[in-house]
Simulated scan of single mutants.
Amino acid sequence: MKFLKWTFVLVLSMITGTLLSQSLSGDNYETAKNNGKGTVTFTYVETPGFVYKDQSGKLTGVCVDIMNDFLQYVRTNHGINLNARFLGNGSSFSAMYNGVKNGKNGVFGLGNITVTEARKNEILFSPPFITNFAILVTHSSVPTLESMSEITQKFNGFTAYTAKGTLNEKRINKLKSDYYPDLEISYVNSSPDVLEKILNDKNSFSYLDLAFYLSAVKERKPLQRHKVGDEGSEEFAYIMPQSSDWQPIIEEFFNANGGYKNTTAYKKILVDHLGLSAVKLLDSAAE
């Protein structure tokens, strides 16, 4: 009986691995328009508030709800009934990103995907759907910085944790160059690992993206935000393969009727999944 059980698990794992290794594809816009229907593929990286599973295990979040509005827009304004399928397990940013980069036609990547010039050489972007804040954080026991010039005094002997290859790593290195030449930097694998280090090491600091900071605040984690270190220059967007012809359609959706980000529906999505504190942060950035 145990042999059969493990055989089943092995076969299931092989099937899952095969599915994930296949090139992602979906119907292009022109084909879907001619047929009045089509299928698009969503691949994703789980990100608090943006793409996550609810209590029933269903995927939800800011990215998912906005794409549902996009599918409705295409149905109403272009006469296309689209079926959306989710592929991947959401555990890896690189798997999601490469799945889109190597995909074909109607494939969309969802998550905390920053728009960069380098990535524009590999994939297509939608218009940005949110501005990302990189928030300077420590354990709540650390006194608040009033200016960045205080950092060597108030963060004396601290370790900075970051994940290699991220934009937050670049921020930490710039902070070291500008303010804290003797800073010790320690590398971890991911943003959740960074957060865990900050919560357990009172003599540490780092930058966290908006999603992870807000998730920690909601869970009442002992986290301190140092506003003088906030940065909000990045923007998150959906991504598509370079072969996709959906980019003009999703641009049309974001620009229609005075701009999707100005609608009540969009603001409700932010409040539902990120909370009022996120909306206040975003409003302050626009001032």
Rank of each mutant, 00 (worst) to 15 (best):
K2A: 14
F8M: 11
V9I: 14
V9F: 14
V9S: 15
L12N: 03
T18S: 13
L20F: 03
A32N: 00
N34P: 02
G38S: 13
T39M: 08
T41C: 05
F42P: 05
V45C: 04
T47F: 11
P48W: 00
G49V: 06
F50G: 00
V51F: 04
V51R: 05
Q55N: 09
D69Y: 00
I80V: 13
I80C: 09
A84D: 01
A84C: 06
F86M: 14
S92H: 08
M96K: 03
G99L: 06
K101D: 13
N102H: 13
N102Q: 13
T114G: 04
T116R: 06
R119S: 06
N121Q: 15
L124F: 11
N132D: 14
N132V: 07
H139K: 11
S140H: 13
V142D: 06
T144G: 01
E146H: 10
M148Y: 09
E150W: 01
T152E: 08
T152S: 10
F155Q: 02
A163R: 02
A163P: 02
L167N: 06
L167D: 10
N168A: 12
E169Q: 15
E169M: 13
K170W: 00
R171K: 08
K174P: 05
D182L: 07
D182M: 07
N189C: 06
S191A: 15
L195R: 05
K197I: 14
K202L: 10
N203G: 09
S204L: 08
S204V: 09
S206R: 01
D209K: 03
F212E: 08
Y213Q: 07
A216E: 01
V217C: 04
D230Q: 02
G232L: 02
E235R: 14
Q242E: 11
P248W: 03
P248N: 03
I249E: 00
N255D: 13
A256P: 10
N257W: 08
G259K: 14
Y260N: 08
T263V: 12
T263W: 04
K267E: 12
K267N: 14
K267G: 09
K268N: 15
L270G: 05
V271T: 14
V271S: 15
D272R: 15
D272N: 15
L274A: 10
L276Y: 09
K280Y: 10
E287I: 07
